[in-house]
């Protein structure tokens, strides 16, 4: 599983907004140039992005291995036909390029995931969406990061208890229902306590944002994003 890890790589030092701009521009460029030449050049950019985050391509592919069957299925479905000539290489070319494009976009995004802490993402959200909606989105995103491990543990405990009591003999629906109901009940109980704690700590609309700032190191990355964006009209 890919997640944030503290570090001092180039990508760690970039402003989160710069990294988001690069990702969006990269995705746009990849959709505009889904051909062998375009994707070859974008592979170079991807290598650069991964190197700046000190992330190996192998760990990225491992982290997103669940996507691979879906991508492979798309290619295979077009490759194999239900009658002669059985294999149609040409039909599979487009899905193959598209699947590769997906992998590149996912890999560049993995660089962001590895190098950006939740508080910087939160600040970027509130910078992009000003006012009260931004405050709700920023605070909400922070809470999702914080409570995900807790609720995962809740669900694991519920499933263990369930298995110990009833074994695996119950239907999928019954098990989903038990896990869902108990998980929801615990989540709501935690929510009520958390809401009280937020109020006690003066949860406010006009809070100070975590520090984020553009620095010299952002300049080349912003130029890269601009270049990728410009490539769409070339």
């Amino acid at each position: 599983m890919l997640g944030y890890e503290p570090g001092d790589s180039l990508a760690h030092r970039l402003d989160p907004r710069t990294k988001l701009a690069v990702q969006l521009a990269f995705a746009a460029a990849a959709f505009a140039h889904t051909d062998p030449r375009g994707l070859a050049m974008l592979t170079g950019v991807t290598a650069l992005a991964l190197a700046s985050a000190r992330l190996s391509p192998v760990s990225v592919i491992w982290g997103y291995r669940f996507l691979l069957p879906l991508l492979a299925a798309a290619v295979l479905f077009e490759l194999v036909t239900l009658g002669p000539p059985w294999i149609e290489l040409e039909a599979a070319a487009d899905p193959l390029l598209a699947s590769y494009r997906t992998l590149l976009i996912v890999a560049v995004a993995a660089g962001y995931v590895r190098t950006t802490p939740a508080r910087e993402s939160r600040a970027a959200v509130q910078w992009a969406v000003p006012g009260k909606p931004g405050r709700l989105l920023g605070a909400g995103v922070g809470l999702v990061f914080r409570f995900l491990p807790l609720l995962r543990r809740d669900l694991a405990a519920i499933r263990d208890a369930e298995r110990a009591r009833l074994g695996d003999e119950r239907s999928t629906r019954e098990r989903l229902e038990t896990v869902g109901a108990a998980g929801l009940r615990r989540a709501f109980a935690r929510a009520d306590r958390l809401a009280m704690a937020l109020s006690a700590r003066c949860f406010s609309w006009n809070a100070t944002l975590p520090r984020i700032r553009f620095r010299a190191v952002d300049v080349p990355a912003v130029l890269l994003a601009a270049g990728l964006g410009a490539s769409m009209v070339v």
Partner: peptide
């Protein structure tokens, strides 16, 4: 556990002062 708002120690302890707009 249910009153921490951030994923890290530093992020959480800053929450109150941030709300005060300091």
């Amino acid at each position: 556990r249910d009153q921490f708002v951030a994923a890290t120690v530093g992020g959480d302890v800053r929450f109150g002062p941030e709300n005060l707009g300091l």
